[in-house]
């Protein structure tokens, strides 16, 4: 997985505690075909999500709380989501996202959360630590990845990670 986050559409949910049951409802956990799984992403709260063609999700606190299902980041990634930008993440979702190199979980501040609107065109410069909203021409700081997380990301996931 690279950390490239080119310009793309942000889908914003002004909501805390977006849980894994709305990200991918339990009834779909038996689906092993990822492209089919993707058609049910976010179905629990936004059935039109898959057709929106978003590259980024912007959300509030504790994104991905609940179940350990790796289907959650997989379904989002297969729908074209490159990164989730949230005020904070639930721990298992965060690790699942990077362990399988599915998507980037990026912590943002309240300024970016309130500044970005649904549908805005945004991009992220991970190494520069900034997030740019091209629609409003504003930039925001993002929280850097902790050391090990960055190394797992750069290794293409947990199985490429070699601590030496």
């Amino acid at each position: 997985m690279t950390v490239d986050c080119p310009a793309g559409r942000a889908i914003k949910y002004e909501r805390d505690n977006i849980d894994t049951d709305v990200i991918i409802p339990g009834q779909y956990l038996k689906i092993h075909d990822y492209s089919e799984l993707a058609t049910h992403a976010m179905e629990g709260m936004d059935p039109s999500f898959h057709s929106k063609g978003g590259s980024y999700i912007v959300a509030g606190r504790n994104f991905g709380c609940g179940s350990s299902r790796e289907h959650a980041p997989i379904a989002l990634a297969e729908s074209g989501i490159r990164a989730v930008l949230a005020l904070s993440f639930a721990r298992i979702f965060y690790r699942n996202s990077v362990d399988g190199a599915f998507l980037l979980p990026i912590e943002i501040g309240p300024d970016a959360y309130s500044g970005i609107s649904d549908g805005d065109d945004i991009s992220v410069d991970i190494d520069g630590g900034t997030l740019t909203d091209h629609t409003t021409s504003k930039s925001y700081a993002i929280k850097p990845f902790p050391g090990i997380i960055r190394r797992i990301i750069d290794s293409g996931g947990l199985f490429g990670y070699d601590p030496e």
Partner: peptide, 26 residues
């Protein structure tokens, strides 16, 4: 265990936690 409610086992003084499928494989 690949299940978030693995925390249950902590009742015995174990450190027990849920993990995702990549970690299950690991």
């Amino acid at each position: 265990c690949g299940d978030s409610h693995t925390s249950t086992h902590g009742a015995f003084g174990a450190f027990a936690l849920g993990i995702g499928t990549s970690e299950v494989e690991h």
